[in-house]
Simulated scan of single mutants.
Amino acid sequence: MPELPEVETIVRDLGARLTGLMVERAEVLLPKVVAAPAPEEFARLIAGRKILGLSRRGKYILIELSRGWVLILHLRMTGQLVYTTVLEPFPKHTHLVLHLDQGVLRFTDLRQFGRASLVPAREVRRVPGLRELGVEPLGAEFVKEDFIRKLARSRRMIKPLLLDQTFLTGLGNIYTDEALHRAGIHPERRAADLDTREAGTLYRAIREVLAEGVAFRGTSVQHYVDGSGQRGRFQEILRVYGKKGVPCPVCGVPIERIRCGGRGTHYCPECQPFER
């Protein structure tokens, strides 16, 4: 699933290219991709609206439209949102197309889990999924002291806690594994068992790995592409994610893979011992 760096890259790319363009019409090729309103009403309401800008909240893409409406998109596992001015056949699994006065914005999704919703701007904060989101880890509201206090109050394993979007929004499997490795913390340790130094190290690791993910334009290990259809490059410097059996770049011990909180998890048994 695209995580914070991937979604942020898409938003920055498309924000620069789409702002000021007009939606002439919408083509809904897979009705279930439109969560709200009904596909026919969706197409009627979005036509003729100008794109005023793009933003991100967690893993959600928000496209602000003229006259008080917002298009909310979630890519889920395999969604791709690509803008092009080249006239060519739509790729397979294209489910939604916005025909603009310059080019087209197309949403493709192999697994068909991604969704689009058109809502009044005044109701965005009340949209299910968005309204429950926690703190943005690259935002000013992500304060180290608050993070340390919240960890100390939780008996959950640290990886499932970091994946909980109501606790901290935007992290997924890739960047959680990478941040925990940088911090030297085993993914199954209880959050409350981390001492202040470890918690502070994890705070810095989360911010660093996400910032690097954005700088490298995301991680393309499967389906992710940016707003122009290009692959990211963070997979070139991954330390543990997807590296089962590969020597750890820090100590040389082979990376192991376990199930943690129901998710496949990669870690180094030497750099991230369970006991402290």
Rank of each mutant, 00 (worst) to 15 (best):
W69G: 00
L71E: 03
I72E: 09
L73V: 14
H74E: 15
R76N: 03
R76P: 00
M77K: 02
M77T: 12
T78R: 02
T78W: 05
Q80K: 11
Q80Y: 04
V82H: 02
Y83V: 03
T84K: 14
T85F: 13
T85V: 14
V86T: 14
V86C: 12
E88F: 14
E88N: 12
P91G: 01
K92F: 12
K92E: 14
L96A: 05
L96Y: 07
V97E: 05
V97D: 05
V97Q: 04
L98F: 14
H99G: 08
L100C: 10
Q102I: 14
V104I: 15
L105Q: 06
R106D: 02
R106L: 11
F107R: 00
D109G: 02
D109S: 04
R111F: 15
R111A: 11
Q112G: 01
Q112F: 01
G114F: 06
R115L: 08
R115I: 10
A116W: 03
A116S: 13
V119R: 09
V119W: 05
V119H: 09
V119E: 04
A121N: 12
A121L: 15
R122C: 15
R122G: 15
E123M: 12
E123W: 11
R125C: 09
R126G: 13
V127I: 13
P128V: 04
G129P: 13
L130I: 15
R131I: 08
R131D: 11
E132H: 09
E132C: 02
E132P: 05
G134Y: 12
G134T: 08
V135M: 07
V135N: 05
E136N: 13
L138A: 13
L138W: 14
A140D: 13
E141V: 12
F142Q: 08
F142W: 12
F142S: 07
K144F: 06
E145S: 08
F147L: 09
F147R: 08
R149F: 11
R149G: 10
R149N: 09
L151K: 02
L151T: 02
L151S: 01
A152K: 10
R153V: 04
R153W: 07
S154A: 07
R155V: 00
R155W: 03
M157N: 01
M157Y: 03
I158Y: 00
I158E: 00
K159E: 00
L161V: 05
L162V: 03
L162C: 06
Q165F: 10
T166Q: 10
T166C: 06
F167A: 01
F167K: 01
L168E: 09
L168F: 09
L168C: 05
L168N: 01
